[in-house]
């Protein structure tokens, strides 16, 4: 074996060793509870999933994609439900990014959320969906403009936007969604049960029934 080849193999060996050590050291601890049960099946709600309302009687989870038109169409109705029953139900947002800019939009919401402006960005993204949605390119600049408009700290926003951990959260949402059977957006879960929705009224009647029924 030539000396060059031997040195190459040593370098590769060291790199593999370093990789194994890095994986072992930084690997997220899988708690015993997740091994025994729901771990691999995905979670409907994670502790760090964004909450738009904090009521305690009923839990409504929406898997959404900021770029999906149906999500934009149902947005005024969920806003209405929030205004009327927000103190009684918990509204949890999960991401199911399925379009070109969906991930960037979710990153923008997450980065705004890190500065306490999650809901403001959530509103802007849906209200102006027609401006940024269905473009050929991932709309990074537009989201930065929105953040600036909301008066966010832009240095921090950029750092949070580019944080791989935020991307991992969105990707985890997608994986959770697939695991619990989400195939399109928006998909709603009311107290853990997937809601079949044919019209926007179905959502309201199901929520009212859960609250008062």
């Amino acid at each position: 074996m030539s000396r060059s080849l031997r040195l190459s193999l040593i370098l590769v060996g060291l790199a593999v060793l370093a990789l194994v050590v890095a994986v072992v050291v930084t690997r997220p601890q899988s708690s015993p509870s997740s091994d025994s049960g729901a771990g691999e099946q995905g979670e409907l709600v994670r502790p760090d999933s964004p909450r738009l309302t904090e009521g305690s009687e009923v839990q409504l989870v929406e898997f959404l994609d900021f770029e999906c038109e149906s999500c934009g169409a149902i947005y005024p109705y969920t806003e209405d439900l929030k205004a009327r029953y927000g103190d009684r139900f918990e509204f949890v947002v999960r991401y199911m990014p399925l379009h070109v800019s969906s991930v960037n939009a979710a990153l923008a919401a997450e980065a705004a959320g890190a500065q306490g402006s999650y809901e403001e960005m959530y509103d802007v993204l849906f209200e102006r969906q027609a401006q940024w949605g269905h473009q050929q390119t991932a709309q990074r600049e537009v989201f930065f403009d929105y953040a600036e408009e909301l008066g966010l700290d832009m240095t921090r926003f950029e750092a949070d936007f580019d944080d791989p951990a935020a991307l991992a959260r969105i990707e985890r949402d997608r994986a959770d969604g697939q695991a619990v059977g989400v195939t399109g957006t928006p998909t709603f879960f009311l107290d853990g049960e997937q809601l079949p929705i044919d019209s926007v009224d179905d959502l309201e009647s199901a929520l009212i029934e859960a609250l008062d029924g």
Binding site: L19, P164, A165, A168
Partner: peptide, 10 residues
């Protein structure tokens, strides 16, 4: 590997 570690690890 370092840049996207948080993603790879997931």
């Amino acid at each position: 590997a370092q840049r996207f570690w948080d993603y790879w690890i997931t």
